[in-house]
């Protein structure tokens, strides 16, 4: 009797261990299948993202006159590849002047914009401002309006101030461009830093203001670099505002230059256009590559652990 019972138990346990084994294998297969499906989907989306870049690069190396002459075959690299588009831009146009103009405008407005967003971000995070949450909502709403919407009002404003067709006339609106968004970003980041750090600095002998600047600013490095990149991107690629404000050729920025050189007599010169786009993209590419490390932590708002 006892023997029988124990046999039964044994069978049952064997059965269950077999089925558990099957179940376990099933989950293993499922996991692999899920991984394959998700990779297929991701690769598809990646193709959509990468194709335009490839298209621009390959077009810049071809010497096709117009879109009408282009064929699918041009997408495959062949022996027809040439640097003539690049050479044309650099030697037959004042490319370096445009680059200099762009870098001055972008550099100054990035610095001004980020400095202001650091101070306002710190203030929004650390000071008790009356109606603070109302202010924050207002700021968020303001970021929803597109920059191009402001071109015409800005034009009137700066025309009255006689600041059109000058560096300063562009630097002011450019600095303000990413300011609100960056302040908000910096505020959120600083919110996540414990107050102990600046309090410790005050106990170590700093005033409150120096504690904020000497301790919190270095600690917010990732988000500040992120803000720098955002502030850089806007003015660097802007055509809407610069196209309206700038009339002297000596003040052309790269975006205006891009438009200028790619306008042929009758058709748009796509080869030149693409080559210019690649040239403009290189500095951005380098910047993002160098600061990649900070971008991730700046964007995810992760702080020191």
């Amino acid at each position: 009797m006892e023997n029988k019972l124990s046999n039964k138990n044994k069978n049952a346990s064997q059965n269950s261990s077999e089925s558990m084994y099957k179940l376990n294998n099933h989950y293993k297969r499922m996991r692999i299948a899920k991984r394959i499906v998700s990779h297929i989907v991701l690769i598809m989306f990646a193709l959509f993202a990468v194709f335009p870049i490839y298209y621009v690069v390959i077009t810049s190396l071809n010497s096709i006159g117009s879109l009408a002459q282009a064929s699918l075959g041009d997408l495959i690299p062949s022996s027809h590849l040439t640097l003539s588009n690049y050479i044309g831009i650099i030697y037959h146009h004042p490319f370096l002047l445009w680059l200099k103009n762009t870098l001055i405008l972008t550099g100054v407005s990035t610095l001004v914009g980020v400095l202001l967003s650091i101070t306002s971000g710190l203030a929004l995070s650390r000071f008790n401002i009356p109606m603070k949450h109302v202010l924050l909502y207002m700021m968020l709403i303001l970021t929803l309006f597109p920059f191009t919407m402001m071109v015409i009002p800005y034009y009137f404003m700066f025309a009255h101030l006689h600041l059109l067709d000058s560096y300063i006339g562009l630097i002011i609106p450019y600095s303000a461009g990413a300011l609100i968004y960056s302040s908000y970003l910096i505020k959120n980041y600083v919110d996540s830093l414990p107050k102990d750090y600046e309090e410790a600095a005050q106990m170590d002998g700093l005033s409150r203001r120096s504690a904020l600047f000497r301790i919190l600013v270095p600690m917010s490095k990732p988000v500040i670099i992120f803000a720098l990149l955002i502030a850089f991107m806007g003015p660097y690629t802007d055509y809407a505002l610069a196209g309206q404000f700038i009339t002297s050729k000596s003040l052309y920025t790269m975006a205006i230059g891009l438009y200028y050189v790619s306008q042929g007599d009758i058709v748009i010169n796509y080869g030149t256009y693409s080559a210019f786009a690649v040239l403009m993209g290189i500095p951005i590419f380098i910047l993002f590559f160098v600061f990649q490390r900070y971008l991730v932590s700046g964007f995810s708002l992760s702080t020191y652990k």
């Binding site: 414990p194 102990d196 750090y197 410790a200 600690m219």
Partner: peptide
């Protein structure tokens, strides 16, 4: 401080 607040 409780969390030491060493400047990272």
């Amino acid at each position: 401080f409780q969390n030491y607040a060493l400047y990272p």
